[in-house]
């Protein structure tokens, strides 16, 4: 347990640097572009329209009211997840100078990736809320649980990014593996389709073995179904988050001394 405590104590000590790096990350993404910050909204919006067009008109697989809203509230946290995993895995190999030239605790790097993706998620969230309001899907008081849902996701993603970043230093193949698996993972997660409408009910338990399902469905319940987030999902998501974060920290700390030398 001490290892976990020390791990976070170091992060806390460097919180000002983390904060500055997160803002720089957020700003860097669109620096130099004409639309600048607008891309934070435009990117998910364009993606949304493309997915919507495909699923609604091309495959016609989904028959759901307000499908755009459904898709959007699942897609935004998914983008946070996908960004954290893919950029998290290369966070140490790409920004190695910070830990080989200066004595910065290496966990700062994956932490910055997860947090800057969180900021992008939060900045795009008003678009989802706007779309919901447009279809007169007014939010319910359950929305007060949103910070909890986000916090669980944050813990899960931090653990994931830690694990992937450390492994990638030793096995550069992991970054390419992640990029490809993310694509498969997307379709295995009920984002573009509703789990209740998944082909056969007997497969549902397999979907629940996917942590992304437990993490993302509460977002859909809050914004689209406008119900309380299912406690079973929340519990499952929290369990995943704790386990992944714990394993992530353990693996990261075990590899820590070799990280600087392998860069």
């Amino acid at each position: 347990m001490k290892i976990v405590f020390d791990h976070f104590a170091e992060l806390y000590k460097y919180r000002v640097l983390i904060e500055s790096l997160v803002w720089r990350d957020v700003k860097a993404r669109y620096r130099g572009s004409v639309f600048g910050f607008l891309w934070t909204f435009l990117n998910p919006l364009i993606l949304l329209l493309v997915y919507r067009a495909i699923f609604k008109y091309v495959t016609q697989a989904v028959d759901m009211p307000y499908y755009a809203v459904f898709l959007f509230v699942g897609l935004l946290p998914w983008l946070w997840l996908a960004g954290s995993a893919t950029n998290g895995s290369i966070s140490i190999t790409q920004n190695g100078a910070l830990i080989t030239r200066a004595c910065i605790p290496p966990q700062v790097l994956p932490a910055v990736v997860v947090l800057s993706n969180l900021v992008n998620f939060l900045l795009a969230l008003p678009v989802a809320v706007g779309a919901a309001l447009f279809y007169q899907l007014y939010p319910t008081p359950w929305l007060v649980l949103l910070p909890l849902v986000i916090a669980i996701m944050l813990v899960f993603l931090y653990g994931t990014a830690l694990f992937l970043s450390a492994i990638t230093v030793h096995f550069r193949d992991v970054q390419f593996l992640v990029q490809n698996l993310i694509l498969v993972w997307f379709f295995l997660t009920p984002i573009a389709y509703d789990l209740a409408q998944a082909p056969a009910a007997k497969y549902r338990k397999y979907f629940l073995a996917n942590p992304a399902t437990a993490l993302l469905v509460p977002f859909q319940q809050l914004f689209y179904h406008r119900t309380a987030p299912d406690p079973a999902y929340l519990g499952l998501a929290a369990a995943w988050a704790v386990v992944v974060a714990f394993v992530g920290i353990k693996v990261f700390e075990a590899m820590r001394d070799t990280l600087v030398e392998e860069l």
């Binding site: 720089r24 700003k27 860097a28 910070l98 030239r101 200066a102």
Partner: peptide
Amino acid sequence: IELGAGFHPDF
């Protein structure tokens, strides 16, 4: 050690 750790060209 090596100068300019963390310098970002676009900033």
